[in-house]
């Protein structure tokens, strides 16, 4: 029988079920990211359709201040790179390197959020709030949703660092690090489109 050998192999393989479970979880998370893509896609669609409806309020080019946004962009780009370095350290088996690079990533992420919050606060003080116009509703919701994603990622990253210090590098923590770094790269990709479509096309 053609499949007999394969079958025997999978039976022998049985006790190592944990590892397969982690592969399933990676796939599940990837699919979750696809759903998140669609979530952001819908927010982008709404923003693009409504971005001209300023209802007498400030327009994109009047409101956005690029230096802060450019800083945010390079910070997030760098953090995507450092989260990759964390994965590299993990694959080399270096727990200290792994936690260290995750910490660098988290600090960069936190400064990104800090800059974004101060940008929002400044806008609100200038009278540009979520209820000023459809354009600003779309802007705050799209950019804010990305910010909430980054913040959730930060809490999650700290939780993973704690688990790493407790359990070390094993198949479960390894998968968790792979997942968070995938998530982080994904948020970087979303930001590239926020940067391009909201900010760059807004001020050009």
């Amino acid at each position: 029988m053609a499949h007999g050998g394969n079958h025997a192999a999978s039976q022998a393989h049985g006790h190592d079920g944990h590892h397969d479970q982690e592969a399933l979880r990676m796939m599940g998370f990837w699919i979750f990211l696809i759903t998140d893509c669609i979530l952001f896609g819908t927010l982008f669609a709404t923003y693009v359709v409504l971005h001209g409806s300023t209802a007498g309020g400030p327009t994109a080019s009047e409101l956005f201040e690029m230096p802060g946004v450019i800083a945010e962009t390079f910070i997030l780009l760098t953090s995507s790179f450092t989260s990759g370095l964390a994965v590299l350290a993990m694959n080399k088996g270096s727990k200290r390197g792994l936690i260290g690079w995750l910490a660098v990533t988290a600090i960069l992420g936190a400064s990104f959020i800090g800059l974004e919050v101060s940008e929002f606060v400044k806008m609100v003080h200038e009278g540009a709030t979520i209820s000023t116009s459809a354009f600003l509703s779309g802007f705050f919701t799209l950019v804010g949703t990305h910010g909430v994603h980054v913040s959730v990622g930060l809490v999650w990253m700290v939780a993973i660092m704690l688990q790493l210090s407790r359990h070390g590098i094993n198949s479960v923590t390894k998968r968790k690090v792979n997942v968070i770094s995938l998530y982080w790269h994904f948020l970087d990709v979303v930001w590239i489109f926020v940067f391009t479509i909201v900010y760059m096309m807004g001020v050009k």
């Binding site: 999978s10 393989h13 592969a23």
Partner: peptide, 24 residues
């Protein structure tokens, strides 16, 4: 999950093991 070997075509029984190690 129950102990279950994820099935996929043309994949040798231990192929999944190297997946994470080879990342980048």
């Amino acid at each position: 999950m129950a102990e279950q070997h994820p099935q996929s075509h043309g994949r040798d029984a231990h192929g999944g093991h190297d997946e994470h190690e080879s990342h980048g």
